[in-house]
């Protein structure tokens, strides 16, 4: 039995905002199946009572002073934008037609 189906890969692609072709979905379904089967080996480590580590170092809540400091100008911040209008990022419509 495969670890992941083609339909599940199509769902992952949608969640990941990747517009994949049918051929790509077939290809990735095969590869992801092999990868997931292999990484499932993590289950072999007995770790019920072990706390998870999200990080290698025990750092918590690093704060800085709340001070005004120089930052990017609008020109700098917009310098790589695909489209700009009135000192703002111009984006495609984000709401449906009926909204």
């Amino acid at each position: 039995m495969s670890a992941i189906t083609r339909d599940e890969v199509a769902h992952l692609a949608r969640l990941s905002r990747l517009a994949l072709t049918d051929d790509e979905l077939d290809h990735y379904a095969t590869q992801l199946d092999a990868i997931i089967e292999s990484v499932a080996k993590v289950a072999e480590v007995a770790a019920e009572d072990v706390p998870p580590s999200s990080h290698a170092l025990p750092l918590t809540n690093v704060f800085r002073a709340d001070e005004v400091r120089p930052s990017l100008t609008p020109e700098q911040a917009l310098s790589g934008a695909p489209a700009v209008e009135d000192d703002r990022f111009r984006v495609p419509r984000i709401l449906g037609e009926e909204a």
């Binding site: 599940e8 992952l12 990484v39 499932a40 289950a43």
Partner: peptide, 23 residues
């Protein structure tokens, strides 16, 4: 896509959560 899978509900504990314990 692999990361999205490992973090999705239903798989999180078995994959990402367990990997963090292995860490």
């Amino acid at each position: 896509m692999l990361g999205t899978y490992a973090l999705s509900s239903g798989y999180y504990d078995a994959y990402y959560g367990q990997a963090q314990k292995v860490r």
